[in-house]
Simulated scan of single mutants.
Amino acid sequence: MTDRHTDHGAPLARFAGAILVVCPRCGGRATVAQRPGLPELRYAMELLFRPRRLVCAGCGATDDWEAERRGSALIGVTLGGTEDPYFGRPLWLQVRCAGHVLWAYDADHVDALAAYVGARLRERGPASPTTAMVPRLPRWMTAADRRTEVLAALAALRAQAARTSPEDRSDVAHERADRPRPRRSSYHRGGPY
């Protein structure tokens, strides 16, 4: 736990580079990442539109995703929730906490959440709260009286990130028809809409 945390406005997309998910074939840990060989990112938000590949090191399962095209527009994904936005797979990193489900995309995401939740003094930087992850965290997660409980759950997620077998899967990381996310991000080649 630290005394101070300054939010520099990192968007949730910053943690969507490699998302740990439940494998559709074996139920172990798989990873959803950018396809290899793509040019360097200029902005984290580009991850919403980039081609992805799901790969399971345990059973060898693979799958590919590409953004939908409508005319000259690319229709990307909307981040957030207990399923990965590309393939709809349950996130590997989920745990029950304070009557809710606490989730993260990967170990870096867990560490960023723990740094904020564990800080006694939380400062916001100049970034816009509409794109920054920290200002959008739910109140139950950031409340001082829940700090110990949330930090314990984040420690459990950190340990979960290192596990890979189907038997290690969290009891909340299961198949469920989570509500569809009707809104998608879009990018028009001539510029944003």
Rank of each mutant, 00 (worst) to 15 (best):
A67I: 01
P166I: 00
A57C: 01
R139G: 00
A30P: 05
G88Q: 02
G71E: 04
P85Y: 08
R189K: 11
A73S: 14
A104P: 12
L157A: 04
R96L: 15
V77C: 11
R70M: 07
P135H: 07
P182T: 14
L54T: 01
D106M: 03
R139E: 09
A61V: 00
A114E: 10
V22C: 05
R52D: 03
S128I: 12
V32H: 08
A156K: 13
G81W: 07
A18Y: 00
F49H: 05
W92T: 05
E40I: 15
A127P: 00
A13W: 03
G9K: 10
V117F: 03
R25D: 12
L121M: 08
C23L: 03
A18L: 03
G17D: 08
G28E: 05
S165Y: 04
E167D: 14
A156M: 07
R139W: 00
R169T: 09
L93Q: 09
L93R: 10
W140M: 06
E46H: 04
A119G: 09
C56A: 07
R136P: 00
L157T: 02
R50Y: 00
P180T: 12
I19D: 02
L91P: 13
R136M: 01
R14H: 11
V32F: 05
W92M: 02
R89T: 04
A30T: 02
A132K: 04
L38N: 13
A33E: 13
P180V: 13
D7Q: 11
D108S: 13
G60C: 08
D63H: 08
A114H: 08
D3V: 04
T78K: 08
A119F: 13
L102K: 01
S185G: 06
W65T: 01
S186F: 12
T130H: 15
G88N: 03
P39F: 07
A104N: 10
G81Y: 07
Y193P: 14
A173P: 02
L74I: 10
T131Y: 03
L20E: 11
V150K: 06
A115L: 13
V21W: 07
D7F: 03
R158V: 02
P85G: 04
R96V: 15
S170K: 06
D168A: 15
G60Q: 06
S186K: 08
V22N: 05
T31E: 12
P39W: 10
R176S: 06
R163E: 12
G80T: 08
D145T: 15
D3H: 14
F15A: 05
H109F: 01
A162K: 08
R14T: 12
P90M: 03
R124E: 09
F87N: 04
L48N: 14
C97H: 09
L151D: 07
T142H: 07
D3W: 13
R179K: 12
D145E: 15
E83C: 09
P24R: 11
A143D: 14
R147Y: 01
